[in-house]
Design a protein around this nucleic acid. Structure first.
Length: 449
RNA sequence: GCCCCCAUGGUGUAGCGGUUAGCACGCUGGCCUUUCACGCCUGAAGCAGGAGUUCGAUUCUCCUUGGGGGUACCA
């Protein structure tokens, strides 16, 4: 099995594109595991030099590397195949399978108005202009692993333009030629290419070659049912990475978006995905990208990481160091890297100052009374260990004859400035005796507004 | 307009003629608990509609409706 992933080099790796890359990857690696020789090629699909900039290609490569999707060959620039494309075009022209015409899109429409909308445009050789392929009579059948056979009647197809007037090839000619030259056996790509496949089939036929096996993946939609785009939030892999998701969670989520196994496992490692993935079981209908489920899955993966591992990744993501203690007490409370700082930032930057409601409720007269008592017993502790802090604070409610919540929440707000935080014994211990007392003193001094 | 594809709860899916229609996210309620989470236990919620075929349709066929894609001298 020889497959390829051929993204358009726009810089961003669209989530749908990433899934296509993943499915190619899983199909190839899965086949390899079963003993079938397999190659996975990356080709940058664009006949336009302007767009295939090094920077754009670099960005796609980065995103793919982050996901852990690797290639046996590539990236190969489709643009570099231009001489070959021109050669094929000239050959087709010489053999009378293609012709030159100055007819424009408008002319084609006029032709349809005259001959009926369900009749395809048929032109004659003018010796100049763009190059179109002659569409023969009959029908074209696309054999697809996911959707079975789809038949297209040739009469509906306009003679497709395969090269510009300057002789440079267009997409439909270029992909077919490149896939053929590369010996691609399975073309796995988005469903948006299905309708164009007959044109490519024509190219294969003109070249006297057998077409590859196709597998057209359903498209990805946003929450509103429309094609996934930036306005739905994250639309690219880069955005997902920046939003603090783990690549392994993204891979797991994407694999399950459009493919399901008869056993209902949800958490699947790369290994398991490679073993189980089956193109025949990919769904035919479009799927909506649901960030809530990704979040949940990400939390699962994040919590399964060792504290050291998570600390390392978090330090890389935030650019801060010395996070281990905070990570340890926050791990089970966060779902993405982005959840970390809002929750644990107070340990480094001091109590949050924007939660007036919390202060009003917990640093009022009752709160300050509890804090004064807490300060006294905490000040006497030596060592200032987790056990000692917990013991000291736990006996306070009974002593003061108040609800436990009064003590704990007041201390929490004193330390964190807000009512949501990691465990307060752990937080206080991490802050240390001096800092803890300092913050309590400051809180007692804050007049309730 | 024309061509093509698709259709199981809000979302992702399992199902491949006979099931109490399963699982997961999300959502209810509850337990746990110093907050928030995590974890555990519950509950609500689905085969788009209509004709067939069949003893029997979520499953097969057709139509309708709905959604999506294509229709470039873009990819």
């Amino acid at each position: 099995m020889r497959v390829r992933f051929a993204p358009s080099p726009t810089g961003a790796l669209h989530i749908g594109g990433a899934r296509a890359a993943l499915y190619n990857h899983l199909a190839a690696r899965g086949a390899a595991k079963k003993g079938e020789p397999s190659q996975f090629i990356l080709r940058i699909e664009d006949t336009d030099r302007e767009r295939s900039t090094d920077e754009n290609v670099e960005q796609i490569l980065d995103a793919l590397a982050w996901l852990g999707i690797d290639f046996d060959e590539g990236p190969i620039s489709q643009v570099s195949h231009e001489p070959r494309h021109r050669e094929v075009v000239q050959d087709l022209l010489a053999r009378g399978l293609a012709y030159r015409t100055t007819a424009t899109g408008e002319d084609v429409r006029a032709y349809k108005d005259e001959h009926g909308a369900d009749k395809g445009y048929r032109g004659t050789d003018e010796g100049e202009g763009a190059i179109r392929l002659h569409v023969p009579e009959g029908e074209l059948v696309v054999h697809d692993l996911i959707r079975g056979d789809t038949t297209f009647q040739n009469v509906h197809m306009d003679d497709p333009v395969i090269a510009r007037a300057d002789g440079s090839a267009l997409y439909n000619l270029a992909v077919a030629v490149d896939d053929l030259d590369a010996g691609i056996t399975h073309v796995i790509r988005g469903e948006d290419h299905l309708s164009n496949t007959p044109k490519q089939l024509l190219v294969y036929a003109a070249l006297g070659a057998e077409p590859p096996i196709f597998a057209h993946l359903p498209l990805l939609h946003g929450p509103d049912g429309k094609k996934l785009s930036k306005r739905h939030g994250a639309a690219s892999v880069q955005e997902l990475r920046d939003a603090g998701y783990l690549p392994e969670a993204v891979i797991n989520y994407l694999a399950l978006l459009g493919w399901g196994d008869s056993d209902d496992e949800t958490i699947l490692s790369r290994e398991e995905l490679e073993d189980r993935f089956d193109l025949n079981k990919v769904t035919k209908h479009p799927a909506q990208f649901d960030e809530k489920k990704l979040r949940w899955l990400n939390g699962k993966y994040l919590r399964a990481l060792s504290v050291d591992e998570l600390t390392e990744r978090l330090e890389q993501h935030t650019g801060r160091t010395g996070l281990r203690g905070a990570v340890e007490i926050s791990q089970e409370k966060i779902s993405t890297f982005h959840d970390f700082w809002p929750l644990a930032g107070f340990l480094f930057d001091g109590p949050k100052e924007d939660d007036a409601k919390a202060r009003d409720q917990w640093l009022n007269e009752d709160g300050r009374k509890a804090l004064a008592a807490a300060r006294e017993s905490l000040a006497a502790l030596d060592p200032f260990s987790l056990e000692a802090v917990e013991g000291a604070l736990r006996e306070l409610p009974a002593t003061l004859e108040v609800k436990p919540k009064q003590v704990f929440q007041s201390v929490r707000v004193a330390l964190a400035g807000t009512t949501v935080s990691p465990g307060i014994f752990e937080s206080a211990t991490l802050l240390g005796k001096d800092e803890t007392l300092k913050r309590i003193d400051a809180a007692i001094g804050v007049p309730s507004t």
